[in-house]
């Protein structure tokens, strides 16, 4: 009937499962020696709880903060590329804000009819698609950034119609490998996306 120190410690730490914990609690209540033992284990835990750690050397903290900065790639894309996103209607902007923590995924357009991109001016919505911007990439392809079905996407025009090249989910939560906007920026830098076309230039390439 000996109770080991490890069992008493687990009890003191709240790590003992039921029904053992309840049974042990009764025995401890009736045995001052056991109670003192448990108190000792509690004390040797509580005295260290929240013990502050010494700060790290400044040089080390600075090196690690530098790692946390976005990669140099992000600097390739001027921030003005993002401006059209913020000119979206308020509801879309909120959806994007939610999406800042969302991950990147490469998915088909999920049933959205992209033909609407042929004629929908940026800033307008139709058939569940909100056009955001129009631009050309290094290959010369005409591409459009748009929002549909909870995704911010980029599609480019091909002989077979609009093909989705990138989609960033605007839902979800928690830690993402890279924020949606960063992923978009990284992709845009990779394809050397040009500046968004102004409304007149856009109208001339849309049908």
């Amino acid at each position: 009937m000996d109770i080991t120190d490890e069992t008493l410690m687990a009890f003191a730490d709240g790590e003992l499962a039921e029904p053992e914990a309840s049974e042990l609690a009764q025995r401890i209540a009736a045995d001052p020696d056991l109670a003192a033992r448990v108190a000792m284990f509690r004390q040797t835990r509580d005295m260290f709880a929240k013990m502050p750690a010494d700060p790290v050397p400044d040089a080390l903290a600075d090196r690690i903060r530098a790692m946390a900065e976005p990669p140099a790639l992000s600097n390739v894309v001027p921030m003005r590329r993002r401006v059209p996103l913020w000119q979206l209607p308020a509801a879309a902007a909120v959806a994007l804000a939610v999406g800042l923590g969302a991950g990147l995924s490469l998915v088909p357009s999920g049933g959205t009819d992209l033909a609407v991109l042929d004629s929908l001016p940026s800033g307008e919505a139709r058939d569940g698609v909100t056009a955001v911007a129009t631009f050309r990439i290094a290959s010369g392809d005409l591409c459009r950034e748009f929002e549909a079905g909870g995704m911010i996407s980029v599609a480019c025009r091909t002989d077979d119609g609009w093909q989705t090249r990138l989609a960033v989910a605007t839902g979800g939560e928690g830690y993402a490998p890279v924020s949606g906007v960063e992923a978009l920026d990284a992709w845009l830098a990779g394809v050397e996306a040009g500046d968004p076309l102004d409304p007149e230039a856009e109208a001339s390439v849309l049908r």
Binding site: P55, V56, A61, I64, R65, A68, E69, G101, Y175
Partner: peptide
């Protein structure tokens, strides 16, 4: 320009 992951990591450095 840091994100929650980076901030939490930096807070845990000590």
């Amino acid at each position: 320009m840091t994100d929650p992951f980076s901030e939490n990591l930096i807070a845990l450095l000590p």
